[in-house]
Amino acid sequence: MKRLGLSGLFFVWLYGVPFLLLVGLIRRTSTPYAPTREAAEAFGATTDTLLIVGLLLNALPLIGLHFAGLAGDEGWQRHFRWAIGGMVLLYLLVVLVSRMATGLLIGHTPADDEPAPAVTQCIPRSGGRGCPGG
């Protein structure tokens, strides 16, 4: 049971974190078709969630090392010690990518195709231009 938990933690980190970060980065660098402003914001929000969850889960080796220490499992302790190196490497890679990005890596909203609202009414304003016919 203990071994199963530790190996689950390890493999979720090993494959799950790169998966989430890769999906998030592909979405972040893409130009999605967004007919409305809301659609673009929802797309951006999902991308942010993926990236944030990936970055949080990347800290799993610290938790794994703690539990492996409690369980006294020397083999998994060694695995998680290596994994902390991988964790640092992955964080550095994300920092590198975010330095290359134009704009924010997290919190970016893609452009949308919503047309600018057309002006249909003329409201007279003091000091402004006069309305046609009035």
Binding site: L14, Y15, P18, F19, L22, V23, G24, L25, I26, R27, S30, P32, Y33, A34, A39, F43, T46
Partner: peptide
């Protein structure tokens, strides 16, 4: 092999989740 499957799946999911114009 797990790495190839993971990266392939991530690219497929990532590209499929981006809406394209009809």
């Amino acid at each position: 092999s797990g790495w190839y499957v993971t990266v392939g799946a991530a690219v497929a999911v990532g590209l499929a989740s981006v809406p394209s114009p009809p």
